[in-house]
Design a protein around this nucleic acid. Sequence first.
DNA 1: CGTGAGTGCGTACATTTGTACGCGAAGCGT
DNA 2: ACGCTTCGCGTACAAATGTACGCACTCACG
Lengths: 193, 193
Amino acid sequence: MSNTEPAAARRRGPNDPERRARIAKAAVEVVARRGIDGVTHRAVAAAAGVPLGSTTYHFATLDDLLEVALVEAAEKNVHALKEWESALPPDADFAAALADLVMGYLNEQYRDTVVEYDLYVAALHRPRLRKASAAWDDALIAFFGSRTDPLTGRLLAGLFCGLLMQAALADPRPARDEIETLFRRAIHGPANP
Amino acid sequence: MSNTEPAAARRRGPNDPERRARIAKAAVEVVARRGIDGVTHRAVAAAAGVPLGSTTYHFATLDDLLEVALVEAAEKNVHALKEWESALPPDADFAAALADLVMGYLNEQYRDTVVEYDLYVAALHRPRLRKASAAWDDALIAFFGSRTDPLTGRLLAGLFCGLLMQAALADPRPARDEIETLFRRAIHGPANP
DNA sequence: CGTGAGTGCGTACATTTGTACGCGAAGCGT
DNA sequence: ACGCTTCGCGTACAAATGTACGCACTCACG
């Protein structure tokens, strides 16, 4: 019953890289749908459309699955951020752009946002995930610093992380203007120059 | 085997309030030790020193346990913050004080910090927990705003939330000075007045 | 003391889970 | 063409888990 592609799976030779990648993406999907504790070998196998034995073979332990999910999500996120930044005009209003970015994460990319925080926080209890989480942080800090200065970049990274999480849980969601005002306040300081 | 106090437990009459409270605190403890997905009726019962049936009676479903753990942790945290704030001299350097606060959460109170983020993020997947998380946020924002102005309070709440989380995952931990500089930058702006 | 309701808990059961193990198929050296 | 090693997976099993159910014990009331 768990064999969804009886012959096709066998067809592929050993060391099929697509298999691992499919399972990794499926792991992210399962986190999005059922949260961290919904990540089981069986759930991921079902989401990936592969038999149970395949997930246990490519990722022997559950932490392996979580690790690959975290790396996958982090890479995707950092890549998207870089794309976003390179598409941003050099003279753009950074506070407004950041507000748009946050709003995007709160709406169209809400699922991604949830996954990211789930996995990120999961690292608190799983030493093996810490390196990936820390690398993610560094990428964020460098990313925000590239448009400003290192100190402001660090500030924006922390604010972005906390604000987005709070906004994702708030009901009703904060307004876009409020977000923009906060970023403006963070970048330019209390007085309005 | 699960009956750890055979007679004493029976001794207490119905509607024993201490029982519920003990289980609630035990739930927080379990989250601290094993994370959200370590919260099972049995684990909490063992931590509370009560039989399994007692936890299932007072908290029928697992979400009930998580909810009470979240409320318990949030109340304790907000209460501690208020104590901290009232013990702070009115003319204290707020940035330095906030840096001390963060360092406290990173060291002596690290366990509490982990629990708080675990439960907070767990609300992303559990609608029942959202109200408690949102209330926690509001308390934080009001708390930070009481020493400054509403906008700065909102900024500090977001920064505090994100920065503490990133710092809790960073290896090595950020230095106290770095934290203080960030808060100073957030409060007073880019120029150094 | 008798009795009835309701509180608190011990237990059993079906389900889900991680994981170990064994078997077939594919590559490869000869 | 033939064995041998490695790869990939199906399966079985023991442990853990949520939850339903029923029993004991208490207390109010007569």
